[in-house]
Write a protein that binds this DNA or RNA. Sequence first.
DNA 1: CGGTACGTTGATGGTGCTCAATTTACGTGG
DNA 2: CCACGTAAATTGAGCACCATCAACGTACCG
Lengths: 291, 291
Amino acid sequence: MLTTTVPQRSSAPFPHREPLARPDDEGRWTADIGCKTCAMAALCTRSPIDRLTHERLNDVVQCVRTVHRGHALYRPGDAFGSIYAVRAGSFKTVVMHREGHEQITGFGIIGDTLGIDGIASGRHSCEAIALEDSAVCVMPFDLLEMLCREVKTIQHHVHQMLGAEIVRESTLMMLLGTMTAEERVASFLADLSQRWEARGYSAAAFTLKMTREEIGCYLGLKLETVSRTLTKLQRRGLIHACGKDLRILDIDGLRKLATDVGPASFRGQPHRQAFGYAPETRLPEYRPGGH
Amino acid sequence: MLTTTVPQRSSAPFPHREPLARPDDEGRWTADIGCKTCAMAALCTRSPIDRLTHERLNDVVQCVRTVHRGHALYRPGDAFGSIYAVRAGSFKTVVMHREGHEQITGFGIIGDTLGIDGIASGRHSCEAIALEDSAVCVMPFDLLEMLCREVKTIQHHVHQMLGAEIVRESTLMMLLGTMTAEERVASFLADLSQRWEARGYSAAAFTLKMTREEIGCYLGLKLETVSRTLTKLQRRGLIHACGKDLRILDIDGLRKLATDVGPASFRGQPHRQAFGYAPETRLPEYRPGGH
DNA sequence: CGGTACGTTGATGGTGCTCAATTTACGTGG
DNA sequence: CCACGTAAATTGAGCACCATCAACGTACCG
């Protein structure tokens, strides 16, 4: 299986990574490896599909492309031709303004789909950067569209995938528009945990492939605020963060922080801030917002 | 043309609106009125299409539905069956958390598409509320999907529409994640102006159908901040805001504010705030951020 | 060992939120 | 018609949250 031949230890420093099953100079690997061989195929489609449909989808994946850490899978302005399914590794997608204004719109981990930002205009509007040495399935979009016209279930899958991205972004907009720093970080960790769990990994312990600055850029916070908030959550006994290694000690507590928000007039009240910077090791009872 | 039979004077008080070409109790109007009769058809599809394709699309629009001010076109949890094109009036789309936490994800004006948030799960994830008495074309999604399988150009239109929504939301995320209050309001006004212009209306003068609170909820600000920022922009001579009537005096100045942002370390510097609350009627030269 | 990238923590101040008062406009009912 | 209640908008005062600036510790290579 490919997922075992691609380097997954992201701790390997970029310029000194071990030799891979070497693709060409452009980082493209033209071996014919489709969904049949991929452990994550079910995740790409996000719902059960019959074997025949699966085989047809398999034909769309014509090659696997590897992207090294720090390199771009595509850049803004690149012609849009394919969408990509992450087979190994992880990515960040970044929208840019001129003059260094940028916002990370998402982190793609194994099983996620990348590249759909190019559908609208035929050119990519954002940038997908590998956070570690990674590999994606390349699915030419015109082939996929052709298949959509033939197979109703596949058409449905594609529409659901696009729809899910729209809903995901709405949720993130609410986070950016209405949540405090603490709620944002808690949401972020709870979401990551749930996604790893859905992929068969541990929900309680995983490695953050992104830096504090990238987390902040995603959540609309500065890196110092992210760092401080992580320590605060740790003092409350909700998580244990040691550098990029993260252990979640109280997932329910995190979820409560992320969603159980009182009316705006209750947030930021002085008496609720009273113990905000007090030397707390583990509060006996923490009341997030409500009763 | 329908657009002339539907009440467009939103200033008419809600309970005293004049009698419409009356729909049934549910607000549904089953008259067979399709794209052929709609002046906004070109906007629905957003790109030139041939006459034959147009006629096929026409078959999908099976009825027009009217929605009165303050009422919902659909609510979270409603079964998803159709997408809607705004023929007259305007809407807000709202994502909700429990306990009154809400975020407006967009304002739909004439020619915009609503309802695609339901594609992912088969149920709507947000709420579309009419800001004034409005009318939408109802397009059953299964019919549209069927047509997509037959006509490649229509398939392309649908994919582009979904893709455009994804890109729109990315842009909004950047606004929410990185911009100051002033930049957000300027972006909002410049965007609205551009959209009205694209629909053949004046880019320089239009009516805001939404309240200050709704603008704030969309931009991630409080209503007081929106109000203060509008007055500030007015004092600078960029706009003239009289209640809900808005005139744009310097669209280039607005766009500059919205996009021409220096590095973060330059924003919010004391010397740039110095004249922030000074009694300014119209500054001879205003330097937004750059050189 | 020195350079760089990353992370943590502290001190300080600004942007925008909160609370509050006032004005205007609108719809309802007297 | 005017009085009244409600919703919307504007403006002011105070301060909380988070950004900014800064110092320091650590890990990882060259």
